[in-house]
Amino acid sequence: MTRTLLVATLAALASLSPALAQTPKPEDQLKLRKAAYSLMGYTFGSLDAMASGKRPMNKEEATRNAELLAQLATIPKGFFGEGTDKGETRAKPEIWTNRADFDQKMDRMVKETGQLAQAARSGDAATLKKAVQDVDAACAACHDDYRVKRRG
């Protein structure tokens, strides 16, 4: 009896705790996807510098950045939920009306960044350069359609 009560109590408590595992509220989704994009911009920037010869080719550093980028690329897609079109965001409303196309462009980014990680591991400068350009094109494809142009 005592034991059943204890289990029931624990189960009830457990049901209260996984708030963090749930979908974050819109405000936090916004924060999370922006953080992911910021870090993606940083890692991609250093890869691009290497690919375009502005920095010496370094296989280890390139691999570390590219693998991190590939991981980060999987994050934003989950944080364009209901209500995240409001607030400080340049996300266009079309994201939520053309969702299939948007998701497809997101998947393209995930795929291209995955290939960039492979290219970085190969340590070949020409392969890296090609992969960097493909990722750049994947980013631009989505930005052209679904990101509000900046205003000075």
Binding site: G41, F44, D48, V132, D136, H143, R150, R151, G152
Partner: peptide
Amino acid sequence: ESSHEGPLSRMVSNATVDRMSV
């Protein structure tokens, strides 16, 4: 806003870079 920037972009604030880009 991707991988290219002007040679003097790092010497000014992001707000200025945005304004100049626009």
